[in-house]
């Protein structure tokens, strides 16, 4: 029986701006089973990174619940939070900006032990750092180098080693490979998969790249303007996407295959502003399947079949 590690209920995050409330994350629900990966995919500004941060309370939520092992971490006090943070880590997008340029590789990886006041001798700590470097595939001769001396792939390995230091059970991967070249990207993706198997990790994997998401995820949630529009297991989304936005997103990906003559769906216009969005479906303005009801009534994320959820009036209408 699979067990839920993380469950997010009605999570909201609004930012106050001069022009009005920015609905970055607007009433989303999802859960991740232990040892599995949920891929969160969407275009820039859809709220996927904000979701990752709110789940770890790096940003305070505007409403909703984040249940970790059944407990709502949004209600945690400071002491409980620091215990939670040992258990839940994040790997950031930009390996150039997320490492302190004035610390050496071994200092960066050792920092989690010091911050969390793990009582251990210096040699013990050094041994742990060496072990971590080995785990993520960093040569031990690099321990005294500084981030600027290393390439993006190696820097991202440092970020991963740092996230693994305190044996977490949950890691938010916030676009960990989008700054890397494909050949390096493949190395890092394989590493993450191996680590997940070895340590039984649970990932929330955020990316704008559906092909990367497909490669790593058990379940996939597609986000558009602060809402989850479709959520399903990884294979059905590619074979039979339901939501019109998912369909358009899939057909927009250039596939490295010359025989591919899929019919392409070209969306009109840009993503609208998330500030004070109108009622109704967020995708209304760009949708090629829209009906009158979509303009005024916000579609709910409803179950279509076992394990498949979609927020679209047209899809639900067809299902009866």
């Amino acid at each position: 029986m699979t067990e839920k590690l993380l469950e997010v209920k009605n999570l909201k995050k609004y930012f106050k701006t001069a022009k009005g409330l920015l609905h970055a994350v607007d009433d989303i629900n999802f859960s991740i089973n232990k040892g599995e990966t949920l891929g969160l995919v969407g275009e820039s500004g859809c709220g996927k990174s904000t979701t990752g941060r709110v789940v770890l309370r790096l940003l305070e939520a505007s409403g909703g619940e984040v249940l970790f092992n059944g407990e709502d971490i949004l209600q945690y006090n400071k002491k409980q939070m620091s215990a939670f943070r040992e258990n839940a880590q994040i790997v950031f997008q930009d390996p150039f900006a997320s490492l302190n340029p004035r610390m050496s590789v071994s200092e960066i990886i050792a920092e989690p032990f010091i911050i969390n006041k793990k009582s251990m001798s210096k040699t013990e700590r050094y041994q742990k750092v060496k072990k971590l470097m080995e785990t993520v595939g960093l040569a031990s001769r690099l321990e005294n180098t500084y981030p600027h001396e290393l390439d993006g792939g190696r820097r991202q390995r440092i970020g991963i080693a740092r996230a693994l230091a305190l044996n977490p059970s949950f890691i938010v991967q916030d676009e960990p490979v989008s700054a890397l070249d494909v050949s390096i990207q493949a190395q890092i993706l394989n590493l993450m998969e191996d680590l997940q198997k070895e340590f039984g990790l649970t990932y929330l994997f955020i990316s704008h790249d559906l092909s990367v998401i497909k490669h790593v995820s058990n379940n996939i949630a597609v986000m558009y303007l602060g809402k989850i529009v479709e959520m399903t297991d990884f294979s059905s989304i590619f074979k039979d996407p339901l939501h019109p936005y998912t369909k358009a997103l899939l057909s927009a990906i250039p596939i490295p295959n010359v025989d591919d003559d899929l019919e392409r769906i070209l969306l009109e216009g840009d993503v609208p502003s998330p500030i004070a969005p109108p009622p109704g479906c967020r995708f209304y303005g760009r949708c090629f399947m829209r009906k009158d009801i979509c303009k005024d009534v916000t579609p709910e994320l409803l179950q279509v079949s076992e394990g498949r959820y979609c927020a679209c009036h047209v899809v639900h209408g067809q299902d009866g």
Binding site: V182, S183, I184, Q185, A186, Q187, L189, N190, E193, L210, S211, V212, K214, H215, S235, F238, L250, I253, I255, P256, N257, D260
Partner: peptide, 18 residues
């Protein structure tokens, strides 16, 4: 290079990076 690309058309398991 082709082995490094996660392909959404194939259900491959492991990437074969350079």
């Amino acid at each position: 290079l082709f082995g490094s690309i996660p392909n959404i058309k194939n259900d491959d398991d492991t990437l074969k990076p350079i």
